[in-house]
Write a protein that binds this DNA or RNA. Structure first.
Lengths: 351, 351
DNA sequence: TCGATTAACGAAATCGCTTTCGTAACTTCA
DNA sequence: TGAAGTTACGAAAGCGATTTCGTTAATCGA
């Protein structure tokens, strides 16, 4: 057998021409078999398939891409300065779930590295074209760069996570941030808390604005005070700044009965500040965070938080993007419900 | 100006031929300019560069790859069943650091999705060839699949993280796992603990074997008992199993004075078991974990642990792989020092 | 039985870029 | 001044696929 020399699959690099020769057909026929064309005889098909299998042949992606202008690649863009990248657990979970689902559709992921690309940084559109990605997932922290909007407005299908895209080939998906705040306020209210504060971020992103506005609205709905003293802000999402903010609150003697921190890390900082002053959670102040990072379960007290459905967000993002790439769907915006996870830090222990 | 119609860069998809026409030169000349050949006149070079800039032209990656057999892509393989994927913080941190450094070298990352690829799952070598990646980073959990070794033995440069590769184009890098155990034992010894136990993994991976063997050795070196009762094993790295293991230990009344858990999550389980039985850490038993995941700082007590230098591992991996791809270095094995982070859980509080 | 379908296959152009090699024009130098 | 060397550039052949369109040969219908 001619193919016996290929003892180990993949050892010899094959191309379509070699396969064609071995099978005694033209490259056109081989290509047709690869792409499931109908005008190929069954015998021929089987013979060629056998050879492809025995030699471990796989068509070259670049040649295919060059010819078809489809790469079977999805670009991953981490946009925004704060928080994005692979550092934030939320994004990692979303990407992980996205990767699983998009993999089922036969796509692989291209992670753009942020550093010097042709000495021109962050020109996402150019890089998407360079690789001819079939679509893009844009995951955003705060303050996204202009280049992201350029990509959004292009003809490349984009799905945004935690960022509102407006391009005609773009859709986006995010948690129902307004409902998150509403749920938190409601939960605290039901547990008897009436003086409720907010630990947010100074520089508003789309997301945090949604949360804060809804928070204020819900407070009003329940007839609760919106006391400026209880609204404090951090310059980033880090633990340290949560600590500082709450420490000041304590020293000012303006502690509310409960607080909602827009990130778990901020909440951790709050816990530290409270402990340092000998105050107890939820005894002296109840606390609810947001994100449900792993650490929440292990803090003392365990942190109540809002868990975004990262699994669902990633999966939906993959499905929507797939449908958009394959023109089976017009882009639209989707919002997914988040879940309040009540642990110890918001327990009802008021007098 | 001819190029003025391209008001927005990247709107029109350019190719090398159009650039050549606009500049009144041949495609060969343009290509030479792109690739820094010397036989191009300075005037011509400037003129062409200007046009490329104005039109936002970037050469097509697939065409370039097809012509040169270099893709400027690095494949990322998450191997092994346990723990790998983007789920484990250790791997995410390594990849993040790797991505930064390899990006500086001009490479982007290709994340292979694990699910159905040509109905043949996990044929990493085939996929690497398919995309013609220039190199690979293999990050391993336990029990890696055969396909990984096939890749390792191929002609594609591979850098392993936490896995010993043996291919002639492969190198690997990992923490000094033996030293980790030695440091832990030494630290506990110095703080007065004499009865020291081990919380490990049933199914040995390369890594855990290294740690456990060194642990036993060091115990002996310090003249301490290697008591089988104090060596317990979990079937995975999860919190729940750490909990179970230590719970049994407590109920058997065979608690050592201190323990080393090979993962932080296991240690968290241990903490829970201890708390549940009204036992205190480090009062009734000191505890040291491994990994330094974020949550360690927030547990009660804060978990002492061994912090692997993920930043360094990722960066070194990138540099080594780059050198291997560019034939500037023969593959070799590198070991990086880990650091013991002493927090509350191993404090000296023995009588 | 003969013209018309249909089935099965291949030749060749194409995708966008690289790279070798050839050549014309210009320098240099003895 | 003429041979040799430089400089600047282009023609053309790949790279490995896809896809259109044409060509046989076999099958069909009346």
């Amino acid at each position: 057998m001619l193919t016996e020399i290929f003892a180990h699959k993949g050892i010899i690099e094959m191309n379509i021409k070699m396969i064609a020769q071995m099978a005694g057909v033209s490259v056109a026929t081989v290509s047709k078999i690869i792409n499931n064309y109908s005008d190929v005889g069954e015998e021929t098909r089987q013979r060629v398939l056998k050879i492809m299998d025995e030699t471990g042949y796989k068509p070259s992606s670049s040649a295919k891409t060059l010819a078809t202008k489809k790469s079977n690649l999805i670009g991953v863009v981490f946009a925004g300065e704060l928080n994005s990248d692979l550092n934030h657990p939320f994004f990692v979970k979303v990407i992980n779930s996205f990767k699983k689902q998009i993999g089922v559709f036969g796509y692989d992921l291209l992670l753009f590295s942020n550093e010097n690309f042709f000495s021109e940084k962050e020109d996402y559109l150019a890089r998407c074209r360079h690789f001819q990605v079939d679509g893009c997932i844009i995951i955003a922290g705060d303050q996204v760069e202009p280049s992201v909007h350029q990509l959004d407005q292009s003809d490349i299908p984009c799905i945004g996570v935690d960022i509102k895209l407006s391009g005609k080939n773009s859709a986006y998906i995010m948690s129902d941030n307004e409902k998150i705040s509403a749920k938190v306020v409601e939960h605290l209210y039901l547990n008897g808390y009436r003086k409720i504060g907010f630990l947010g971020i100074e520089r508003h992103s789309e997301i945090t604005s949604l949360r804060e506005n809804a928070f204020r609205e819900t407070l009003k709905t329940f007839g609760l005070a919106v006391n400026p003293d209880w609204f404090v802000y951090s310059s980033d999402y880090e633990e340290e700044n949560g600590y500082r903010a709450v420490k000041q609150l304590i020293e000012k003697g303006a502690l509310p009965e409960a607080m909602f921190a827009v990130s778990d890390l901020l909440a951790f900082g709050a816990i530290r500040a409270m402990k340092e002053h000998g105050l107890r959670i939820p005894g002296d102040m109840a606390l609810i965070g947001c994100d449900d990072i792993d650490a929440c379960r292990y803090t003392d007290p365990a942190l109540s938080t809002v868990k975004q459905d990262t699994e669902k967000i990633g999966r939906l993002a993959a499905m929507m993007l797939y449908d958009m790439v394959n023109k089976q769907m017009d882009p639209s915006a989707i919002v997914v419900e988040a879940e309040l996870v009540a642990r110890q830090s918001c327990g009802k222990t008021l007098p």
